[in-house]
């Protein structure tokens, strides 16, 4: 009926401090970790610093404004979170002080039975030490050995002390007493315990109590469900690939109902993208047609009014995750055409150039498309072909008369990476052949070259350049060597709303039915240092003499294979496609046989 | 509510959902074909009259080919193909129909290639591939058409697939070398 209340503030401060520390400790550790980690963050490779410069210079004003507006503020040392953490710890200090200065708490603490304190020994004392301490103290405090000229009171105190010391000794040595001490904290067995409410009386029984009740109702009935439901719906509404579940199911529906009579073009992909749920949420008053037109405007590099421009840039920025989401769905449906078209659409959005035979040329800055289409004595459609001409002629072909602008364009063109295949095989770690039912992976040796580099046959590379460590570590994790390469540099994409990096998507198809067999692998670690090499095809006369393999960095790409090797011996053919998500003219497409032998 | 037009013999539904519309169009298509069917005891067997007509047109085409009258042969065979699409009811045995179409298409492909109509040939070849005909001669012709159309990357992809299914094919190997060489030239 009647409860003891925490009038003396003995209990609730501990509870409050415990709650605070439970929250603050992980938060503090996280903040410290983030602070240190942000300083170690891997910077974009300095490999193409000239291109980075141009990447900034050639960005139009509208996009500069957009990037400034949506810049993710890097939280430094002084951020909101740090402030909250500091305040939290201050609060802990205040509560600590309260507890410390609380008489009632001290009193309660003093009644705690501590045998080590009573015997004046450390908690790690050995049996011998305990016994000798007891002997010394019992002699000192024995009622018979005590000084005779003490008052009754003093005598009683000393007697009590003697009893306690004996109890302390027993608590550490005698089995029964020790049991009691361990279980109940006191050698005499269970002590008197009090139960009560760890709140001051005024909060519960008097006028403040309705507020407490309302507070509880608000917390349990409103705030908690709101937070939990918000978190739940947010988790439920996004797929693993980071797109809205409605968008994912729309893509799945398109692919499920895909008819072979449908022609797959970049336009189809853009049509599908325009129906994404993300856009509906961002701009509920606009329809898919508007988004489709905005995407078109972006590809045609048309400028819209200021408001529409911002919408357009946000729509374009979102295509990154949407396209990867679509790719995930299409590879799961084993649809090769859609998967390849999706990556080509990606390129075209990144470079703001529609997919066409001239995309490799039109992705370059400063190109006069009209003059290019009208001119062109020879059929120049590729960057490689472009670099067979001297600079002056290139200027004529591209319709660039200004020398500095021509130099800009040439710089960009020569830094667009091309992948050259040096070696490709199916590899089973620790084996020399691919055995039936083993788990192979695809091991590629590639060379990242510039379109202006002269071609040379892969045989120019001695085998030793392709060899890798075959130790136990390498066999346990064959993909580790590929991950040791530097991350790819920032993409040259001045017309993309956000600064970006990207590499290639590796797709594997079964040649028998021409269908995709696994989800794509993103290749974003390769050295681009070869792009700086001076090996201009217009200058090299004798490849044999000029080529030095040690000047070239060989790249490694390891693609995991999703299925085990077939159970029968034989040759099985697969098509491997490495499609760049960033540039036109960077792709690699070849057939790789898997030779299964005993 | 479902309505039936006695004149056109077609069904219609107000506010139909996507699936219902599809269902309706299927029913209506069958109905229209049924209405046009003169034989009350029709079977899935291909109608003899149509087969005769198509065969006649096709044979005319073959004759003209022998006489090197290629444009006319192309016209005849195309007409035969049109007939096979128009004059066959949806319930006729699909396997027979497909074989008929594929056989005629193979001839049309060669006629197109001979006359330099590469885009047309490509369409027919893709149809053959899509409907399960993956023999080497299809890949050979498709690679050839793509090379002539200057689509060297696509040509290389095609002949690599052809070689995967028939690794010892000499013609495909030669085409692979050619498409690789042309692709290298294309890339400077």
């Amino acid at each position: 009926q009647s409860y003891d209340y925490d009038e003396k503030a003995e209990t609730w401060p501990f509870f409050a401090m415990a709650v605070l520390v439970v929250v603050l400790l992980p938060l503090t550790l996280m903040q410290i970790y983030e602070l240190f980690n942000s300083q170690k963050e891997e910077k974009f490779g300095e490999q193409t610093s000239t291109l980075n410069e141009l990447n900034q210079v050639l960005v139009p004003q509208s996009i500069k404004k957009f990037r400034a507006k949506y810049k993710v503020k890097k939280s430094g040392v002084w951020s909101k979170k740090t402030l909250i953490v500091c305040l939290g710890w201050c609060l802990v200090a205040v509560i600590w002080k309260t507890i410390d200065s609380n008489e009632a708490v001290r009193e309660a603490a003093s009644t705690i039975f501590d045998p080590y304190l009573l015997l004046d020994i450390s908690t790690s004392a050995t049996e011998k030490e305990i016994r000798s301490a007891y002997r010394k103290l019992s002699i000192k405090f024995h009622p018979d050995k005590v000084a005779k000229n003490l008052s009754e009171q003093q005598r009683a105190v000393l007697e009590e002390q003697y009893v306690l010391i004996t109890k302390a000794y027993k608590a550490l040595t005698d089995e029964v007493t020790r049991e009691n001490y361990l279980q109940y904290g006191h050698p005499d067995g269970p002590q008197a315990t009090s139960h009560g409410i760890a709140l001051p009386r005024f909060l519960v029984e008097s006028s403040a109590s309705p507020f407490v009740v309302v507070g509880y109702i608000a917390l349990l009935g409103l705030i908690l469900p709101i937070f939990v439901s918000r978190w739940w719906s947010r988790t439920q509404s996004v797929t693993k690939k980071g797109i809205h579940v409605k968008t994912a199911s729309y893509f799945a529906d398109r692919l499920f109902n895909f008819k072979p009579s449908q022609v797959v073009t970049s336009d189809l992909i853009l049509d599908w993208l325009s129906n994404a749920e993300e856009y509906k949420i961002m701009y509920p008053h606009l329809g898919p047609k508007v988004f489709r037109n905005l995407l078109n405007d972006h590809l045609q590099r048309a400028s819209n009014g200021e408001d529409l421009n911002e919408i357009k840039l946000r729509v374009v920025a979102k295509t990154h995750s949407l396209l990867f989401g679509l790719l995930d769905v299409s590879t799961n449906f084993r649809n090769t055409e859609i998967s390849l078209a999706a990556i080509d659409t990606f390129k075209s959005i990144v470079q703001a150039t529609p997919v066409s035979p001239e995309s490799q040329i039109f992705q370059l800055p400063n190109v006069d498309q009209k003059r290019f289409s009208e001119g062109s004595v020879d059929d120049v459609r590729t960057l490689g072909k472009l670099f067979t001409y001297d600079e002056k002629k290139i200027g004529q072909i591209l319709g660039i008369s200004d020398e500095s602008r021509l130099q800009e364009t040439l710089k960009v063109a020569s830094f667009i990476p091309r992948l050259k295949l040096l070696k490709a095989e199916f590899k089973v770690p620790g084996e020399t052949v691919v055995t039936p039912e083993s788990i192979p992976h695809i091991a590629l040796k590639v060379l990242v070259v510039s379109p202006k580099h002269k071609a040379f046959p892969p045989s120019k590379f001695p085998q030793v350049f392709f060899e890798e460590e075959q130790d136990f570590e390498a066999q346990k994790d064959p993909f580790a060597s590929a991950l040791e390469q530097p991350p790819v540099p920032q993409t040259f994409a001045p017309l993309f709303p956000v600064e970006r990096t990207g590499g290639w998507c590796a797709l594997v198809m079964l040649q028998k039915d021409g269908k995709v067999i696994q989800t794509p692998l993103v290749v974003d670690r390769l050295s681009f240092s070869n792009l700086d090499n001076d090996f201009d095809k217009r200058e090299i006369k004798d490849v044999e003499a000029s080529f030095k393999p040690e000047n070239w960095v060989v790249g490694t790409i390891k693609i995991p294979f999703s299925q085990p090797a077939p159970p029968q011996n034989g040759d099985y053919f697969f098509r491997v496609v490495l499609k760049s998500t960033e540039y036109f003219g960077s792709d690699l497409d070849f057939t790789l046989p898997m030779m299964v032998r005993d | 509510s479902l309505t039936y037009d006695a004149n056109s013999k077609l069904l219609a539904l107000e506010d139909a959902s996507f699936d219902e519309l599809m269902n309706l169009s299927q029913i209506n298509k069958l109905t229209q074909n049924l209405v046009g069917e003169s034989n009350p005891n029709f079977t899935p067997q291909p109608r003899e009259t149509s087969t005769v007509m198509i065969k006649k047109l096709f044979e005319t085409g073959l004759q003209q080919t022998k006489q090197h009258k290629f444009p006319e042969a192309l016209k005849s065979i195309s007409l035969a193909l049109e007939m096979s699409q128009r004059k066959r009811a949806p319930w006729e045995a699909f396997a027979v129909q497909l074989q008929e179409v594929q056989f005629m298409l193979k001839n049309r492909v060669d006629l197109c290639l001979v006359q330099g109509r590469f885009v047309d040939a490509l369409q027919d070849l893709e149809f053959l591939q899509n409907t399960g005909l993956t023999t080497s001669d299809v890949f050979i012709r498709k690679t050839d058409a793509l090379i002539k159309l200057q689509q060297f990357e696509l040509a290389k992809v095609e002949c690599e697939r052809g070689l995967s299914l028939d690794p010892s094919n000499v013609k495909l190997k030669a085409l692979h070398m050619e498409s690789t060489r042309r692709l290298a030239e294309y890339n400077g």
């Binding site: 072979p260 022609v263 073009t265 035979p357 | 699409q85 319930w91 179409v101 369409q123 899509n130």
Partner: peptide, 22 residues
């Protein structure tokens, strides 16, 4: 049967698309 018919019908459309693309 209808799938094949659709595929055949799409030949002209595909031809146009290819011509535009290339």
């Amino acid at each position: 049967n209808q799938a094949m018919a659709r595929r055949y019908e799409s030949i002209l459309t595909r031809k146009e698309v290819n011509i535009n693309q290339w």
